[in-house]
């Protein structure tokens, strides 16, 4: 009976078994990611026109002023909202890990926020922050005296929605990777004479830093590529990259399709640069470990 277990399995067969297990996931992912981005790239270069013959051209990238404005706007929104989310997320994680009843309440509310679809988040933040929104009524401010938080020049409501959702995401990622290990390290530091803030600075933060970085990079990438929040709560001009791409995609003009694809390509490149920087940072963190 045990012969089946001890019989040596040839390495090649083990490789094959592992490959067979992973293929059902790899094939659709490769199809959508490589096929999707590849086609977008071809479209942006004029190689897959809706009508007419294919011809290599960089015309879609020519309107550089417009593209630069949108890219800077998208990056600013992503940087600000991710920074806020990272700070709030880290302190929320510390609160949750501290393990008392307050931490449990915050943890439950954070988990609830993570499950809310971004579109619903945008709808409810709109109801909360608009000039006739719930907050304006709670503070008794008249609509014309209320600052333009929704669809205003500060992109306040967009940033608030991203910061709200992503802070919960970042907090839960940190809690998930640290919760089991952190108490014993915290106790060790305490019995070595380290006070609360020294422990936060010298133990908790460095231990949480890798997962904070990874979670923030994911949040940043999401924010940069997300469409519905900026579309619902943002100004009509200037537009973030994703909103401009979708408007061009849906427009009747023939030249618009390659331009929409070009914005897609630019967004992919921006995301790749930021993620690569984050991975470099992570590697340095590990080396310094």
């Amino acid at each position: 009976m045990t012969a089946a277990l001890t019989r040596p399995v040839r390495p090649r067969r083990r490789h094959l078994r592992a490959a067979l297990l992973v293929l059902p996931a790899v094939i659709p992912v490769a199809f959508v990611v490589i096929g999707g981005v590849g086609t977008t790239l071809l479209q942006s270069l004029g190689l897959m026109p809706l009508v007419g013959s294919a011809e290599l051209s960089t015309a879609a990238f020519n309107d550089s002023d417009e593209l630069l404005t949108s890219a800077l706007l998208s990056l600013s929104i992503a940087v600000v909202s991710t920074a806020i989310a990272a700070v709030i997320g880290f302190f929320t994680a510390v609160l949750i890990i501290s393990g008392n009843w307050g931490g449990r309440i915050v943890g439950a509310l954070g988990a609830a926020a993570v499950t809310v679809p971004h579109l619903v988040g945008a709808a409810t933040v709109g109801l909360l922050l608009s000039d006739s929104g719930v907050l304006a009524r709670l503070f008794g401010v008249a609509p014309d005296a209320w600052p333009a938080l929704v669809a205003g020049p500060t992109w306040f409501a967009v940033i608030a929605e991203y910061a709200w959702k992503e802070s919960a995401f970042i907090a839960l990622i940190i809690v998930g990777t640290l919760a089991t290990r952190i108490t014993s390290y915290d106790e060790t530091a305490a019995v070595l004479g380290a006070h609360r803030f020294a422990r936060l600075r010298l133990v908790l933060f460095p231990l949480a830093a890798p997962s904070l970085l990874v979670a923030s990079a994911i949040a940043f990438a999401y924010t940069l590529g997300s469409y519905e929040v900026a579309w619902m709560l943002g100004q009509t001009y200037p537009e973030p990259l994703s909103v401009m791409a979708l408007r061009l995609f849906n427009s009747a003009s023939l030249t618009a399709r390659p331009e929409a694809a070009a914005i897609g390509v630019i967004t992919v490149v921006l995301t790749a640069v930021v993620v690569a920087a984050a991975m470099l940072g992570l590697r340095r963190m590990r080396a310094w470990r």
């Binding site: 990611v33 479209q43 929409a260």
Partner: peptide, 18 residues
């Protein structure tokens, strides 16, 4: 890396192509 990439990919960029 491949299996993780959809998280980082801007959805609209892939969706326009696919």
């Amino acid at each position: 890396v491949l299996l993780f990439s959809p998280v980082l990919l801007p959805p609209f960029a892939a969706v326009l192509g696919i």
